[in-house]
Design a protein around this nucleic acid. Structure first.
Lengths: 337, 337
DNA sequence: TACCTTCTCTGCATCGTTGCATCCGCTCGT
DNA sequence: ACGAGCGGATGCAACGATGCAGAGAAGGTA
């Protein structure tokens, strides 16, 4: 049993309250007592019980980050930024992984047993339905990452449409005449993917190029496996693409690998661009062009919003748009341009 | 303010205790009351306050997984296994990232404000000194991942020496005559790295090959960047290696990329093998041979140990050795063998 | 009828901490 | 000399939940 304030108080021959005062640096405590109490604290190795403290204060300084999957480096990198920025603000950021399981996601966000445990939640949703969104108590401090489908809550996102348009336009600028889009979900209308598809179509339209449904290649999840499979599918088309806009870097890296297996020259025969700017893309062969959302910025904005919400200062739900950048590396630089 | 037991009790016209009984399915509660209380619970949307419950019960069912860095896919993949296995056991596994900062690691493990918050800790240490280990109260339920340097605690690890020996032997078997080892820390004696180096030397000895200190290439951290830099260094040697055993897949992938830039054929001129079996290695060009520790097995073993420790059943500290496997892919298959 | 069980339901104390109010003793101003 | 003021230390209650013991009421037995 770890020592409590009571134990320390007994050891030092003072009241519990005085020990608490010393621990927290509160009030005026005479130097003499301070020293005596501190000695007892050190002696017994006292550590405050965060559970009890949080219960009393109604505040835990714990924030949960709910993510679909950590083995997507995008989330891993975002997590690092969140943890660092959270620490700077005095929060301990804990990560909670849903494994892309909507059921579990629902549990974590909705059932919210953790309401009392965490001061707030930052959620990157995958499968929340409208109905489920409406079940979330607004008393709850929550910030969502991603498309702002649900006006009751704060959101942080990038302009996915504009970014997707820029990526597609870049491929077209490199001389691609048939640009495919890879990453639409076959059944669920994942709003991020839908928005990116919008941007893709906008770019085609702007360049006066036709929209060919064959060139919209579905993927269940944003993984290498799916990217590899999709690439196989794309190459079986009667008129295969010469440019490939992937909705995530992982998809792109999977596609890249398959292209290599099939003997397709990248970027010579096929120019590829991804989305997310994960570290892996800097080390692939060829290196991967991508859209780079500013993860640090996103973390900062999300935590700022959440801090306000927790403090109850926030008024209207807000949507914050984070900056992004087009990074041109090897995979999209076509020869002769 | 979320509703408490008191609020529900008032609404249902029963005692607090009875509501608690209904919530927990305790004791015998008449069907009539059960229904009435349940109605009030639903009506008010009552959620138990985990803080209060944990404080009273002295048990939170929360387990923390302390890791150096999540953007190393090895840890991300391990984390997934831990979260899944933990959930199965009724634990919520929270992740805590130290960013490889020994100071922070020390804080998380030693200061252990969280003693009361978490029932137990699973720690993958990076920079704990002997002295620091000794400061950890044994009352604390902790399981370490990695070399069992500290006999006071439970450990789960693989046989790094044997695995390293197998990796090195494999390269030699492929016809390599000068095998380099990449990943020893230049200053700190990271025990995992040291053990892997032992295995490397053992394999050389067994093959009757000389040990050349020039072929032991240091790396500060197990990252792609470091791997890339080390590869440059290796290629500047008077007598460069024709085989490369990297202490992590990330190092190997960085080295692979640099090899490509330098125009070195892999595996033709240089055979490469990594360590960790991260997903990325299945999709690199060429695909990466590696040592694959059984992550699921490790997660299971760590949680089993921890569960015992928490229950106070554990007797002597134990070290559990997890299985591993040599995966031969493209990067180490030399032509003509 | 008297007594004992059994079944429900309840009140009290408690987990470890902090907010609030108070209390003691001393100094100070007039 | 006396009350006000203040620094220093304390006790009580409470955060929201559960363990425990016990109170009534209902039912069973001799």
């Amino acid at each position: 049993m770890p020592p409590t304030l009571r134990d320390v108080a007994a050891a030092a021959g003072v009241s519990i309250r005085t020990v608490s005062n010393v621990v927290n640096g509160y009030a005026a405590v005479s130097e003499e007592l301070r020293v005596r109490v501190q000695a007892a604290l050190d002696e017994l190795g006292y550590r405050p019980n965060l559970l009890a403290r949080s219960l009393k204060q109604g505040r835990s300084n714990l924030v949960a980050l709910v993510l679909p999957e950590l083995d997507n480096p995008y989330f891993a990198e975002l997590t690092r930024a969140m943890v660092e920025e959270g620490t700077r603000r005095g929060f301990t950021v804990m990560i909670d992984q849903t494994n892309g399981d909507p059921e579990r996601e629902r549990d974590l966000v909705l059932r919210a047993d953790r309401t009392a445990l965490f001061d707030g939640l930052i959620v990157s949703p995958l499968g929340l339905s409208d109905e489920q969104f409406h079940e979330i108590p607004t008393s709850h401090a929550v910030v969502f990452l991603g498309e702002d489908d649900h006006p009751k809550f704060d959101h942080v996102r990038i302009d996915n449409s504009a970014a997707a348009q820029a990526a597609t336009a870049h491929l077209i600028g490199q001389g691609c005449r048939r640009v495919a889009a890879l990453g639409v979900h076959p059944t669920v209308s994942h709003s991020t993917a839908v928005t990116r598809l919008d941007g893709y179509r906008a770019a085609l339209a702007e360049a006066g190029m036709p929209f060919d449904p064959d060139l919209v290649i579905p993927a269940d999840r944003f993984t290498r496996d799916e990217g590899a499979a999709a690439m196989h599918a794309a190459w079986k088309l009667d008129d295969p693409p010469d440019g490939l806009f992937c909705f995530s870097d992982l998809l792109a890296l999977g596609a890249l690998r398959t292209a290599h297996e099939l003997g397709i020259a990248v970027p010579g025969q096929l120019a590829i661009i991804g989305f997310d700017d994960i570290d892996d893309g800097r080390f692939s062969t060829p290196t991967l062009s991508t859209i780079s959302p500013d993860k640090r910025w996103i973390a900062t904005a999300a935590l700022d919003s959440l801090t306000q919400r927790i403090a109850g200062e926030a008024t209207e739900p807000s949507t914050i748009i984070a900056p992004w950048e087009l990074l041109v590396r090897e995979s999209s630089q076509r020869p002769g341009t």
